[in-house]
Nucleic acid binder design. Structure first.
Lengths: 186, 186
DNA sequence: AAACTTTCTGACCATCTGGTAAAAAGACTA
DNA sequence: TAGTCTTTTTACCAGATGGTCAGAAAGTTT
């Protein structure tokens, strides 16, 4: 799985070969296929296993917390994930970009359920006057987009910032925190 | 080129075949390769031809305009591009996601030059007190990320919003406009 | 109409890729 | 030790794919 993550996230599904994954995992192709029912099965298994980890920060948003704190924490956690788990982010990005052909049920199921729930919480905060009124779904999208950008478009970010240090994640965290807190203050 | 855009943006570089593009263009593979020097050449030609169109909205930002108006106009233009030219967006997203193996010079050249220039303008507005102080590069990234999200992750957005109408682009425009204007008001 | 140039096609090839078959090599048990 | 089950390797295949080539059409010039 570790090898598959490395390969798939770098070259995409079609761009990866079973041989590459096997080599990366230090085994032969037939041996790899002894444990998995084919290339697609590896890919799906990987996506399913990572989905819950990937959604953990969103799941952690609590209705009881302070809205501003919760959002700040969420943004920070997502930037951290882009820094520490860029491969996972790219894996999902690749899959969604191609129209999510392998995980349609994950989108309509687990993901939608969670997002609907959290959107409800956000909406509640807004009607309670604790958050500037806006569309909660688009708010979630904007947090995903801005934070995952630093993993998915890393090459571009590094090129344009002209720095290779991890400093960009700190800067990003600070910038996004300011943007969202100012933008959402009731 | 139109056929290549359609195919490459849907399946990615590795996932597309020359035959697919040829069929889409209504010609035979050898005939297509009579005009292009190979699969890679088609891809690169496409990326280079689209780069300027793609950057037009950013290029249109004028130092003389009102900062808030300029940013509002830019965000709107970018959302419109996601709606009207999703294939172009996905084509670039695919390429950057894989590490931009075919267009390294475009990033370090044309793109970086333009972004540096516009970041300078933004910085100028900030020191003049016309815009809340923040990192101009990360500001540009956040506008790119949030707007292109609606093209690149369209499947996810449609699934979670549960609507297929183009209404989502209107909502997105409104939401992002509010977010950025509130977040950047000095 | 002949000569020549450009465009296009069918047949073909080398390579890559996902996947399989069968047997060898270990590991465990009676 | 012999037998059985699991794991791994070697050899291989069928189909897909990028690309080539000789020559046929089609068009243009002389």
């Amino acid at each position: 799985m570790e090898a598959a993550l490395e390969v798939f996230s770098t070259y995409g599904y079609r761009g990866s070969t079973v041989d590459q994954i096997a080599t990366q995992a230090g085994m032969s192709k037939p041996n790899l296929l002894y444990y998995f029912d084919g290339k697609t099965a590896i890919h799906v298994a990987l996506l399913e296993r990572l989905m819950s980890t990937w959604l953990a920060p969103l799941r952690a948003i609590s209705e009881d917390g302070d809205p501003m704190d919760e959002i700040r924490t969420y943004v920070r956690a997502k930037v951290k994930m882009s820094r520490d788990h860029p491969r996972e982010s790219r894996l999902f990005a690749n899959e969604i970009l191609q129209g999510a052909p392998h995980i349609p049920s994950l989108l309509t199921g687990e993901l939608k359920e969670l997002v609907d729930q959290k959107a409800g919480i956000l909406k509640g905060w807004m009607t309670a006057g604790k958050l500037a009124p806006c569309d909660p779904y688009h708010l979630i999208f904007s947090i995903w987009a801005t934070t995952q950008h630093y993993a998915d478009f890393d090459v571009q970010v590094r090129t344009l910032l002209g720095t290779d240090s991890d400093q960009r994640f700190e800067e990003a965290s600070t910038f996004l925190e300011t943007l969202f807190l100012r933008g959402l203050k009731p």
